[in-house]
């Protein structure tokens, strides 16, 4: 694969600063590239030949009406859905496919595990494991899927819980925590895998309003202190504006508008974007 050398350069890139490769920037190989990606459920085409790229360190917010395909993009990246056409590239390696000779064939489980290692996801409904304490929720994956020694994993779990403000709850069952606390644990759990890419799927949508701020603060902190690449589907426009480098407006499986938050929120070009933002801000 010709990309491999470049991969190494990407990962040791010293200037992975949060101040931004812009959308059109093609200076370096994109971390994520969707190439003519198609996804459909039966006759319902969710994504039609979608093309877009994300640069390393970029924080991208996906907005748009429900059913416009935003969540599907995250789920495809996390390999929770099968792709129906096109190729997804992560760091130059195909995610949905693998090379067999010079041909791309659908990826098998083993190959997908290797590529997927770079990606972490936080879900709308938290999806913590109820059969484990908070600590084990965070440590089991690093121990079993990365081979991190238990002591090290425990230390890291304590650090991460401290960061999300839940150090004291480490030995409790997740069911005893509030939704907001559970979501913060879920964020810690995803970070424990040291992903390069963090996918956030409507992470505050299932929370009571007064718990939203705590979760968003944690994410702001992560954005401020790390250069982790983020893709967030969210209806929290304030958060999107503060944190993201770039906003993608989706409608019917296509990117309707793509630009920095100031432009999208300040002077949207498309009528559809205007009406969508209007509707969201009204209700929020």
């Amino acid at each position: 694969m010709p990309q491999s050398e470049q991969n190494i350069q990407d990962t040791i890139r010293p200037d992975a600063s949060p101040d931004v490769p812009g959308p059109g920037d093609a200076v370096q190989q994109p971390l994520i590239r969707f190439e003519k990606v198609v996804k459909q459920y039966g006759d319902n085409v969710v994504l039609r030949e979608l093309d877009f790229t994300v640069q390393p360190g970029q924080r991208v917010t996906l907005i748009g009406p429900s059913g416009s395909g935003k969540t599907t993009i995250l789920r495809l990246l996390m390999t929770l859905e099968q792709i129906d056409g096109g190729v997804i590239w992560v760091n130059g390696d195909p995610l949905s496919h693998m090379y067999k000779g010079d041909h791309l064939v659908p990826a098998n489980e083993k190959y997908q595990r290797a590529v997927r290692k770079k990606i972490g996801m936080v879900f709308q409904q938290f999806n913590l494991f109820p059969n484990m304490t908070v600590r084990r929720n965070i440590t089991e994956a690093p121990i079993h899927s990365l081979g991190v020694p238990r002591g090290e994993a425990d230390e890291r779990a304590a650090e991460l819980l401290d960061m999300v403000g839940l150090k004291e709850r480490i030995d409790e069952h997740p069911t005893r925590l509030s939704g907001g606390q559970q979501q913060r644990v879920a964020i810690a759990r995803a970070l424990a895998m040291r992903p390069e890419i963090l996918l956030l799927d409507e992470v505050t949508s299932a929370l009571d309003p007064e718990l939203v701020a705590g979760v968003l603060d944690v994410l702001r902190e992560i954005a401020r202190t790390t250069d982790i690449t983020m893709l967030a589907v969210t209806h929290e426009m304030g958060f999107a504006r503060d944190v993201s480098h770039r906003v993608l407006m989706f409608d019917h499986g296509r990117i309707l508008e793509d630009g920095p938050p100031d432009q999208i929120f300040g002077e949207p070009r498309e009528e559809r974007t205007k009406s969508f933002l209007h509707a969201v801000l009204e209700s929020g």
Binding site: M78, L80, I119, F123, H144, S145
Partner: peptide, 25 residues
């Protein structure tokens, strides 16, 4: 199914998914 999806997101092997998460539940 969400539990299964979380195990994929955390990159567990299929056997680990079963042993650590699915069967205990």
């Amino acid at each position: 199914r969400a539990q299964y999806e979380a195990t994929v997101a955390l990159n567990f092997e299929p056997l680990q998914r079963m042993r650590l998460v699915i069967l205990p539940q």
